[in-house]
């Protein structure tokens, strides 16, 4: 999974997608996830970072994370490809 090329994420949570011309606002935890995706962390690594930082449980986080990824995908902000790494 990768952030699409040229998608700009500002520190305050503004995203601009130059391909579609759309702008978005993202909350701080959303920005963190986008940064972790940019760093090419996988889902397990991302979960770990967030669980250490926030008071929530794995199930809730997984659920919300999956939902967030769906929406990013829906807005064409990320590319999901088969994870073939071992």
């Amino acid at each position: 999974m990768k952030l699409r090329k040229n998608v700009a994420v500002s520190e305050v949570g503004l995203i601009f997608n130059p391909v579609t011309g759309e702008s978005f606002s993202v909350n701080p935890i959303g920005v963190e996830i986008l940064e972790l995706i940019r760093e090419e962390k996988d889902q397990n690594q991302i979960m770990q970072v967030l669980l250490e930082k926030y008071s929530t449980d794995q199930a809730t986080l997984e659920n919300d994370y999956a939902d967030f990824i769906d929406i990013l995908n829906h807005h064409h902000l990320i590319e999901i490809h088969e994870e073939t790494k071992d």
Binding site: V12, G13, L14, F16, S23, S25
Partner: peptide, 10 residues
């Protein structure tokens, strides 16, 4: 500029 639009929006 897009920044102006984002500024007023955010």
């Amino acid at each position: 500029d897009r920044e102006e639009f984002e500024q007023i929006s955010m």
